[in-house]
Amino acid sequence: MITTAMDNPDTHSGVSNAKLGVWLFLCSEIMLFATLFTSYIVLRTGASSWPWGWDALNVPLGTLNTAILISSSVTIVMAYARAYDKDVKGFRLWMGLTLLLSFAFLVVKGFEYHGEFAKGIWPSTSLFYACYFTLTGLHGIHILGGIVVNSSLLYMSFKKEHWDNPLFLGRVEGAGLYWHFVDIVWIFLFPALYLL
């Protein structure tokens, strides 16, 4: 057994633990939503009748929510850029805006649900509404999760010790990755449910 130059190869992936962890988590999330989308396709193609989304759902509110979510993706990137430059105030501003937009999304969603409940429409009404409430509901839970993460980062930004911690920027980046993912899910959900 001869010792060679291979004796000390670089054994690290070059990606930080937190970032790799977030990416792996997103892989599992992709599988989760891919399963739901697949089930949606299977159920829809197997159904004898299926309503058109724009007849059954509130498309203007859905469009508004799409705009809100896309804007929030921009603001969280700005927040990350401000954190990268150690601009405390800028970070708080953009992260605060992101949170505001996420709450706005949930409020709009609430109005949408309320409109349906008022018409006597529930998840049990038909398979279409079952898919609609389940998929958007699960997406809403993911938005809530993002709000928890983002607001804790905003809270942390008020303490100097976190700005001195090299991990903080990584956490902001991780939160950004997650938020983009939630956004992308909506980009698929919106046409699948409302438009097609």
Binding site: S39, L43, W122, P123, S124, L127, A130, F133, T134
Partner: peptide
Amino acid sequence: DRVFHTSF
């Protein structure tokens, strides 16, 4: 299906 009586 069980709690909200959908029919997936």
